[in-house]
Design a protein around this nucleic acid. Structure first.
Lengths: 198, 198, 198, 198
DNA sequence: AATGAATGAGAGTTCATTCAT
DNA sequence: GATGAATGAACTCTCATTCAT
């Protein structure tokens, strides 16, 4: 029964998605540095040439994967966001969504961070690098207009919100902290909130 | 005889340092992914084989560079630290030292971050990965004992201190924020202090 | 039923011819070296697999194209040839036909030349290489028997007839000479005639 | 003794020449189409990477080989040429030199012909294609000025001189004619002379 | 200590060919 | 008959590393 389900699952996942997922997996295991197109094909159970039916090159594969993750992340993060609601509600929802996404998809977190630290590599535009900060920037910007946040530079408010999340995720992935329990996460979000709110 | 030995030693030291510096430079320009031993030799003005007189392999070169940077960073960060002084003084000094070091050595910052996100690569032990956090961890630990910080998990206090610095540095290196002016830096440190102190 | 068969046959004939024509075209544009079966299919507006319904392999496609061209060329060249007519008439007609064919079908000229210089490749028999010389050889042979040509080796008489045509065609295709005007062509044929005739 | 000589010979031939010679050899055996860099290395007795120490790419290797051959050919062909001598002497010397070069270096002949028929491939400039005709063009041009040749287009006079040589070489290489004996060669040159001279 | 020509395994990629649909 | 996704061997080229000098 299980085997059957897995087979159906594999079968129904299209090749492009399969390649992207396998890439994400391997980049996490070995890093950008050691991602091999041959190993990718073997792990995905396809032949060496198949990847090139769906992607122009290793570079464009990496770029497309990054774009997909960013789109998914930014979509999930802004879920529940409404302009009318209190800044506090929106902020907590957004931060909560971000942490939840990273906990649920640690490989995506690791991929994003690796990607942003590969200078001049795999990047069509330098700006897209920090696209990950767009949702948080948007909220902070609005809150600044309405003077709902401390009188600090916008970038600092972003850093005070996003920085601790990244640091905690790193410690979490190294097995050095808990993050899944409600308490720790709430403490993290509460601390960030205090750091930016008036 | 002794003089001769010393001279050789100094001479060698210089070449080793030259290789390390060039490596740091090239990793910043092209990333780990495109660090080539040939380009390294050319840029350093030495021959292809010379690197292997000082380092066993590309991997060990990278590892040694990382260790050197960490040692230098941790040394600089804890400069001025005294057990007797107030936690506030020690915390501000340490944080200030860290930011100053990164601003002065942005290539080291970028290298460290790249290194820590290269999973299972170039690493003899997994633990050394987060060695960068040792000074801050030490101070937080002591402050916790003496109940000078908020009642939060140690890891969270670390994340609230170090995370914003990393985020700001990234934004700074992308040209999206100032960090060299006294004000911005002070605002950053002040915000971190508020986040952890009682 | 018969009609149906004929229709299918005609339909297939067209596709086969389409493939052959497209091959000729692409070999001229990119050379043997860069003839790609995928590009062939795309250019011909058929799918990758279709070519293999009509030809066993790339090699046999090339060989068949060569054979077709040779048959067409040799047919055209010997048009008008009659054993009874004067050697002069037959020689001029033949040479004229050859030049006309090449001018009208420069791609065939180029293809033939490329083919004959691809050693041991695409060739079932080595002899067929020089099949292009058959008509001229036939005429020279007969003329030799009847002592209508100079007392020179048969091969030399062939070379004196065919060589200048090929050279002129190359210069013509490189845009370095005219060949379409009646004068130049007549001068070429006249010169060849003088070289072989008594 | 022989073995010793060969070893010395191989040893004293520098790598670059060795690679060029092996390339020439293999292009003759298999054609451009099937020249493989791996086979080249194996045949030359060097490793796969060594070729790239001396040539940027397969393309530049082919181009350099072509240039070398053309330079050698043109040098040999114009040996003995003097402006003061009779046109007849210069013409015969030149034609004789060309034929001798081709007979002595049949692989060069074949290579040149293959190269000139590879459209848009391996060629930096289209003009260099016909550089092979430079010496003959030069002589014909001068003779035309002094009205020592028939009143025919320059290109036709070139074609009447060079065309038969190429045709004979092709037949010679196919084993269909003799060309090494003095008689055949003299007959060839004499026929060409008659075709162009007054 | 220093060189740099040489290595050769392996990288990313292509492409003639197949076969289930 | 026609398709085109998939194959996988082979391609050109790179690069960390070695070693005779």
């Amino acid at each position: 029964m299980n085997v059957h389900l897995v087979l159906i699952c594999v079968y129904s996942m299209n090749k492009k998605e399969l390649i992207l997922k396998t890439t994400l997996h391997l980049v996490n295991r070995h890093g950008f540095y050691h991602l091999s197109m041959k190993e990718l094909a073997e792990t995905a159970g396809i032949s060496a040439g198949t990847t090139y039916l769906y992607f122009d090159s290793k570079e464009s594969l990496i770029n497309e994967l990054y774009k997909n993750i960013i789109i998914e992340f930014n979509g999930k993060v802004l879920k529940g966001y409404e302009k009318g609601r209190s800044f506090r509600s929106n902020y907590f929802d957004m931060m909560n969504n971000a942490v939840d996404y990273y906990i649920k998809n640690p490989e995506c977190f690791s991929f994003i961070e690796q990607y942003t630290y590969s200078p001049f590599i795999f990047k069509e535009t330098q700006e897209e690098n920090l696209a990950i900060l767009e949702p948080i920037q948007k909220i902070i910007k609005e809150a600044k207009k309405e003077k709902m946040v401390k009188e600090l530079p916008e970038t600092l408010l972003i850093a005070l919100s996003y920085g601790p999340i990244v640091s905690m995720m790193k410690l979490f992935m190294a097995g050095r902290t808990d993050l899944k329990t409600k308490t720790t996460k709430e403490q993290l979000l509460e601390a960030c909130w205090k750091a930016v709110s008036i």
